[in-house]
């Protein structure tokens, strides 16, 4: 039956062509146009592209000169790399810890899954507003809790969005929101590990830590790699929550990520050419991150 399906190409084509056409129209074509735009002077939305610069060169390289010389762009790339590192370590790390703990819970495991997954279904804009209230300077929840605990006073309030604290304040909600996503993936991976192996290990006298170290983690390796890859590429796409909490890279453009800076250049500064060049950088970073992940953490056949 299956072999018949694969021998007859027409049904395959009928089903594949629409999907390919949609991808070509909405992903590949815009991407190619985006690359072209990065070599053109597209000053603002509403005006056309100028392919040839004043010196007569066929390629307008100013957008790329900007990308490689702009200090804010450097800061945005650095913030994004930091965000990638933080998400891998904390999002996946905390999710793994929670999954291991919940895996040992005998009752209410499903309730924990629902609770941890819940932040994913809240819109990032709503979360941004929520965390803005948490981190407000003089009327914010966090500072008021710290005051009530006697850790700070009204004269020594903490500015959670200052130059020093902004990155921490930006990453905390991002981590919090997506821990549940990786938790569910890892919990599902843990469910696939046969209980017989644990029983055999227990008979051999393995401690709980040894079971995790020598059974759970090795057998969970491919799932962890999937989570790490998703976390790395996901960090490149983080936009809504940071933009809601730190619009225009506040304070003073120091909290831009590559995604938010691309938006700023394209829609607020109205330099589509520069925005396009940043978009290409984002794609390049994504490909590089995925490649490095697959090289360093090569999946193993189980």
């Amino acid at each position: 039956m299956n072999s018949m399906v694969y021998k007859r190409k027409l049904p395959l084509a009928v089903f594949l062509i629409p999907a390919f056409a949609i991808m070509a129209l909405f992903i590949y074509y815009p991407f190619i146009v985006n690359i072209i735009n990065s070599f053109q002077k597209v000053g603002a939305l509403g005006t056309g592209a100028v392919p040839v610069n004043d010196s007569g060169s066929m390629f307008f390289l100013d957008n790329w000169k900007f990308v490689f010389s702009d200090p804010t762009m450097r800061s945005a790339v650095l913030n994004t790399l930091k965000m990638m590192a933080v998400t891998v370590v904390f999002q996946v790390g905390i999710a793994l810890l929670l999954a291991l703990l919940v895996d040992n819970v005998r009752r209410g495991a499903q309730a924990y899954r629902t609770i941890y997954f819940f932040p994913i279904v809240i819109s990032a804009s709503a979360l941004g507003l929520l965390f803005n209230m948490v981190f407000l300077y003089d009327t914010g929840m966090l500072n008021n809790i710290l005051i009530s605990l006697g850790i700070i006073s009204k004269d020594t309030l903490i500015d959670w969005k200052s130059f020093d604290n902004a990155f921490f304040t930006m990453t905390l909600p991002v981590i919090w929101q997506y821990v549940g996503f990786y938790f569910v993936i890892l919990a599902t991976g843990l469910n696939n590990i046969s209980a017989d192996i644990y029983e055999a290990a227990a008979i051999d006298g393995a401690t709980g830590f040894q079971r995790i170290r020598f059974i759970t983690l090795p057998l969970l390796r491919n799932t962890i790699i999937t989570c790490v890859t998703l976390a790395l590429t996901g960090a490149l796409k983080v936009f809504d929550l940071p933009w809601q909490m730190f619009p225009k890279g506040a304070p003073a453009g120091t909290t831009y990520l590559t995604g938010t800076y691309m938006y700023q250049q394209t829609f607020n500064v109205r330099n589509v050419g520069q925005g396009s060049a940043i978009a290409v950088v984002i794609v390049a970073l994504g490909i590089a991150a995925a490649q490095i992940t697959s090289l360093v953490l090569r999946p193993k056949d189980m």
């Binding site: 603002a44 130059f163 225009k248 890279g249 506040a250 003073a252 607020n268 109205r270 330099n271």
Partner: peptide, 20 residues
Amino acid sequence: TVPAKEGFYYSDLAKFCSGA
């Protein structure tokens, strides 16, 4: 121009006042 507004008000003013 819009880029001047964006750069001056949203970035450089604070950078200058912070000593950056």
